[in-house]
Amino acid sequence: MIKAINIKKSFGENVVLKGITTTFLAGKCNLIIGRSGAGKTVLLKSLVGLVKPEQGEIWFDKTNLLSLNKLETRKLRNLMGMLFQGSALFDSMTVEENIRFPLDMFTTMTYKEKLARVNECLERVDLSGKNKLYPSELSGGMQKRVGIARAIVLRPQYLFCDEPNSGLDPKTSILIDQLIYSITQERMITTVINTHDMNSVMEIGDSINYIENGLLAWHGGKENVLDSDNESLQNFIFASPFLKKLRARAEK
């Protein structure tokens, strides 16, 4: 479980996070949603320690990330995996080398053991046999899946995904969502996903945090997100004219 308490962050005069308090549950897909510029990415980066908030506490179970020194932070990060918006695969390394990198860095496993773990992760993301390809030889969806494989290779307790569906077609987006969802459930990971994809919200949003102007404007699950009385959230969900028409028809 991750608990963020009163997180405040500003860049110069621009106050991005104005005191967010929320909880991300273990074994669930916890979504952060909101319009562009609402502060989603800054919140996600604060949770992993890439951005240091000016105020607040971030608890990973019983450890406050913001009270740790560099060495302790690095140790805690061994328990984290992250899928970046652009996948962030090392482009001069093959798929296998990319996924093996954390194992090379942090384990004393033999090459054979590492290879077995890499192949297990590749199989889990449905990319068996793609070991020797370079990231430039993969499609966007495949790159995301390699990113997921690399993020889970050290068997993390916490998984962070920054816009996992950006740049993907709807069908591939659903596949990525389902993959993240099933990995979260089978490994009991605390997964935090930053997205503005409404399909993701409705499919995998066990716990949804709606951010508006640097504040938590709504919190709930996918089962009650459509019925919420938060006007701003409703405007966000039904932003597309097509969805507005569908809703109007359903109400009739």
Partner: peptide
């Protein structure tokens, strides 16, 4: 720029 350094940081790499 390609977030490779961030990716390594998240893994716990110095």
């Amino acid at each position: 720029q390609k977030e490779h350094i961030d990716a390594m940081d998240i893994m716990g790499v110095n």
